[in-house]
């Protein structure tokens, strides 16, 4: 059976969520700003030796109906939390999103990724280190991306899929362990999560 995952892209208004999704799905860059209401995209791509079907929900950053964010959070397998490196306000709102996810889905065991968008921008307000620090605090991986120059776009989705696979494997191991009751730990698919995040972060230092 083909793997299927649902990814929700959330973050404050105007940080470039839609451009990231468009660049990933259609390989083009949207120039005009038209606030998103809510759009779902489907993309099948090759990652880590197997095809996966991704359903990507591009959410509204601007207008939130009561309970809408909670619905996104409850229904997705993974989250892309996006802020803009040229907008300090967007960065300050990110932490709230993390704590909302934590309160609904638990603090760990869910695939999340912090993304600093528009890293091609000349007007930088948030340093790469600030983003890295926040990601360490909430224990998730982090990357700065540019939809305009197609930098790190495919990589962030690769990373999310890797996380989701890792979590799924871990789940399966846990259930088989309790089933046979012998406590035999099956080999994990990949290193320990802590090492795993550190490894990712190192390979993704900012290019500019």
């Amino acid at each position: 059976m083909k793997e299927k995952y649902k990814v929700a892209v959330i973050g404050p208004a105007g940080v470039g969520k839609t451009t990231i999704v468009h660049q990933f799905v259609y390989n083009n860059y949207v120039e005009v700003y038209d606030p998103t209401i809510e759009e779902t995209y489907k993309k099948s791509f090759f990652c880590g030796g197997a095809h996966v079907d991704l359903e990507i929900v591009d959410t509204a950053g601007k207008e939130h109906f009561p309970g809408m964010l909670d619905r996104y959070i409850e229904s997705a397998d993974a989250f892309l939390l996006v802020y803009s490196i040229s907008d300090a306000r967007s960065f300050s709102q990110i932490y709230q999103l993390f704590s909302r996810i934590a309160s609904i889905r638990g603090p760990i065991g869910i695939a999340r990724m912090l993304v600093g968008a528009q890293c091609d921008s000349a007007k930088r307000e948030i340093d790469h280190d600030d983003g890295a620090q926040l990601s360490a605090q909430v224990q998730c991986s982090f990357a700065e991306v540019s939809a305009k120059h197609n930098i790190n776009i495919v990589e962030i989705f690769d990373e999310l899929v890797a996380q989701m696979r890792y979590l799924k494997n871990q789940d399966r191991n846990r259930s088989t362990n309790t089933l046979n009751g012998k406590g035999a730990i099956l080999p994990m698919a990949g290193p320990h999560p802590d090492q795993w995040y550190i490894r990712k972060k190192e390979s993704w230092c900012c290019f500019m």
Partner: peptide, 11 residues
């Protein structure tokens, strides 16, 4: 959205 009932958020 509609699934027998109308919704936008959770309710």
């Amino acid at each position: 959205y509609y699934d027998g009932a109308h919704y936008v958020g959770e309710k």
